[in-house]
Amino acid sequence: MTNMQELLRRITAAPSVSGTENAAAEVIKDVLKDTADRFETDALGNLKAVINENAEPGVMLLAHMDKIGYIVTGIDKETGFLRIDKCGGSDARVAPALRVNVYGKKTLPGVIISTPPHLAGPDAAKKAQPLDKLGVDCGLPYDEIKDLVFPGDRAMVDAGFYELNENRVCSPFLDDVAGVAAAIRCAELVKAAGGGRRLECVFTTREEVGGQGSTTASFATKAGTAIAIDVSFAKAPGLPETVDSALGSGAMIGYAPVLHKSLSDRLRELAEEKNIPYTVEVMGRSTGTDADEALTAAGGKVTGLLSIPIRNMHTPVEIADVRDVEAVGALLAAYVLDE
């Protein structure tokens, strides 16, 4: 079994802002090279790892490998700074003074500007600037940078991966690196146990910009069951009391009108049987994950959702507990092996 912290660290480092996920796909392929029977990719860049190729029935797992980031919209001629906008739901409040890497002709380090204190008006301490009012400083004049970076290039936060203690990690992109790692763990557990359903681990693209990767992957699969793996809100100060799944409390089993109750119930039974810690997460409508696209794809799928609780979602300091990632991996493996 791959060490969980190392696995998270490695996938986190791969540049994969929505629509440009190839580097992450390569890392995942390398991690699963001895586990998967074969790999497939499609036109949208989804990576599918197949295990138990000839078994029936099949189950498809969906974990998205794209990360939130920024897209270059232009270059300021006077300063050489890059104008940016969000690519996925990047939080503008945390943007000032963030270190980023810009993936142009080569990888350039840069920093999102922060308004100098003397120019910060009376409201500056209370209200953040939207991203299109900020910019990225790569330290290069226009004449140099114009040949290296083009509008449409992506930029991604470079904020470090910290092990806060033996269980908790702090890093950007645990959404959905944690889900990707749980799917990988499931694949490793199934392979080690032998048998079970045909398992298709699909590492999807573009979840953060609308779930187009899940749309095409869910259409293409022959599996009748789909389980999305994503992150959700962990209990934290200032959040509604209904956000009650603490870090370290295990897998979050999703219940929602768009999810099959029979599958959610089965996952809960398995968690009880196997002593896998879990909490229940109830959503009143759709889920905002790859599950939403899977549900209606190609005539419809039996659809479920498992989540990993994280704090500070869509910031450079997402915090997860690796025990929760392991719980999701173990619960998924229990389901795949439960013929």
């Binding site: 739901g89 939080d91 503008a92 409040r93 945390v94 209370k126 209200k127 953040a128 600037q129 939207p130 910290y162 806060l164 702090c170 809100f233 934290a236 100060p237 200032g238 959040l239 509604p240 956000v243 905002g288 704090r311 500070n312 979602m313 869509h314 910031t315 300091v317 915090i319």
Partner: peptide, 17 residues
Amino acid sequence: AVGVKPVHLCAGDERLA
């Protein structure tokens, strides 16, 4: 890490507050 209320759980003006 200095914690942040997830932007998904913020409404309207709170998203930049």
